[in-house]
Amino acid sequence: MMNASSPSPLGEFWQTFRRNKGALGGLAFMLLVLVCALCAPWLAPHDPSQQFRDALLSPPAWLDGGQWRFPLGTDELGRDLLSRLIHGARLSLLIGLASVLLALLPGVLLGLIAGFSPRHLGPPIMRAMDVMLALPALLLAVAIVAILGPGLANTVIAIAIVSLPAYVRLTRAAVLGELERDYVTAARLAGARLPRLMFVSVLPNCLAPLIIQASLSFSAAILDAAALGFLGLGVQPPTPEWGSMLASARDYIERAWWVVTLPGLTILLSVLAINLIGDGLRDALDPKLKNGL
């Protein structure tokens, strides 16, 4: 089965990943989204906030009354929906990426500390995480946004805080598992210092579950941002964020199905694509976890 000429870990990873058709499809879709995000100003037919006031709620081009100038129709202010979706890709990817990084770095650090100091620093950290996990994520995010005020940056912060405990728990569990292994004992006996032990010996061996968690929380971040936008607390208009587009279009759902259906479908497909990739990653990186979720 294995390609004998490429025994490198990366090559091995790709071999396994590639066999998962769903993951490949997801990857292709996300590449498309990425291209949209990077080249939005050139790809989008119109400025996403330009209002064509003679064409409010114009239907998609293939329907009666639709115009080819607006392939997916326009919203309640006459803005081109396709352009807004394309520009929205930027925001969603940005929110996903930023909130994953913002949660990952402190989460891993806290998890390492908790793992390496199971007596002193560990318990308070883990209790604090328990406290955060006891509150429903969306409520906590709503409260944080209420404190910081709505907006892009604050949405990212709120989502990052909410997803922090998962990283801490995961890292700590992985560290505790690794610490019992022989190579760590060996490194300790050889006189390795704590930071070296943490970052050079143990951390790389905990990467697999972290990467999988990152892919999961990337898609969760897109969903959470959209949910906040739906509650009117996320990114503010006229910024074309998918969730808030959907929220402001909700009033027109019976007259103009496209303004609600299309942003929702975009969110669903993107999240699905990322989760497919996540599945592929899990299969390829961590056979132990293969059948979990």
Binding site: L223, L246, I253, V260, I267, I274, N275, L276
Partner: peptide
Amino acid sequence: SLTGYSMPIFWWGLMLQI
């Protein structure tokens, strides 16, 4: 099931309702 797991449920709710 993966689609269901990826569902933005506020949108799903609106769609089913309508």
